[in-house]
Simulated assay, not measured.
Amino acid sequence: MDKQDLLIRTAFRLFYSRGIHAVGINLVLAESGVAKKTLYHHFPSKEHLVEAAVRFRDRSYRKWLTSRLEQVPAGKPALLELFNALDDWFHSRVADIENFHGCFFINASAEFGAQDNIIHQACSEHKAAITALIREHVDKLSIPEKKKDEITRLIVLVKEGAISLAHVQGNLDAALQAKKIIEGVLSATQGQKKTSIEE
């Protein structure tokens, strides 16, 4: 691991567990063992380091989630597996993405709230990418085309709600509760499609 990568990984771990504004550059240096001159060679400011940490988390989280969804058939099985993956994350059973401290992108965007801020935009891009991943599997469902946007939005909203409940209220079973809701909706929606065909 080169020093730039070490700085990013160390900064992410600290930012995620303690909060971005609560972590100073000196703590990142102390934890990483990298010299201040080296840090500023790679990152002219703390905000540049924060952006790099957000981009790093985006890559690692999407790689993990995509891998989980690829372990089951596309479509409904993958959409339900999404919530199994979240359940593992909430219970800190996923070593690759750190123990659960809520959604780093929600946390970071709250600390950099201006819509035109580069960090806020990076967080928004991550959420859009996850929505697109979900939509790929919604497109595999045997449901009317006009329902696909609605189902995608519903899954995204329920997913985000589960993350918030797990973090804010400590409801670590929120993912499996959300899975039951989505399973019911998908079964009902696909059942309507089947009935329509039979008619």
Rank of each mutant, 00 (worst) to 15 (best):
E111Q: 10
A114Y: 10
A110F: 09
A95M: 15
C103E: 05
G102I: 06
N107D: 15
F100Q: 00
G113V: 09
S109W: 09
I97Q: 00
D116R: 09
I97Y: 01
H101E: 12
G102W: 00
S92T: 07
C103H: 11
A108H: 01
A95H: 08
I106M: 14
F104G: 11
G113W: 12
A95S: 13
N117H: 10
H101I: 02
S92I: 03
E98K: 03
S92N: 13
D96C: 06
F105D: 10
H91P: 14
Q115G: 04
F104R: 03
E98P: 07
F100T: 02
G102R: 01
H91Q: 05
V94N: 01
R93N: 11
G113E: 08
R93F: 04
V94R: 01
A95D: 13
N117D: 15
I119Q: 06
S92Y: 00
V94D: 05
A114W: 09
D116G: 14
D116I: 06
A108M: 08
I97W: 01
S109H: 05
Q115W: 09
D116K: 05
F112Q: 02
F90P: 14
V94Y: 00
G113F: 14
I97R: 00
S92V: 05
R93M: 12
E111G: 09
F104V: 09
F112S: 06
H101Y: 10
A110N: 13
E111R: 00
E98R: 05
N99V: 13
V94Q: 03
A114F: 14
H91V: 03
S109Q: 15
F90D: 11
A108P: 06
E111H: 01
D116E: 15
I106V: 11
S92K: 03
Q115C: 07
D96S: 04
E98G: 11
F90Q: 03
F100H: 00
A108E: 12
A114G: 07
V94G: 04
A114C: 04
V94H: 00
E111A: 10
A110R: 12
F90S: 04
V94C: 04
F104P: 13
H91E: 05
A110K: 12
H101Q: 13
F105Y: 15
F100D: 02
G113L: 09
N99A: 15
F112Y: 12
A114K: 10
N107F: 03
A95I: 14
S92D: 11
E111K: 00
D116T: 03
A95R: 12
F105S: 10
S92Q: 01
C103V: 09
D96V: 14
F104M: 04
F112T: 03
I119H: 02
A108I: 07
I118Q: 08
I118E: 15
G113Q: 11
I119P: 02
D116M: 11
D96T: 10
D96P: 04
A114N: 07
N99D: 14
I119N: 05
I97S: 00
F112P: 04
I106L: 05
N117K: 11
D116V: 05
I119F: 05
S92C: 08
F90W: 07
H101L: 04
A114T: 10
N99C: 08
F112A: 13
G113T: 07
A110L: 12
N107H: 12
F100W: 01
S109F: 14
A110I: 15
E98T: 09
I118K: 13
V94K: 00
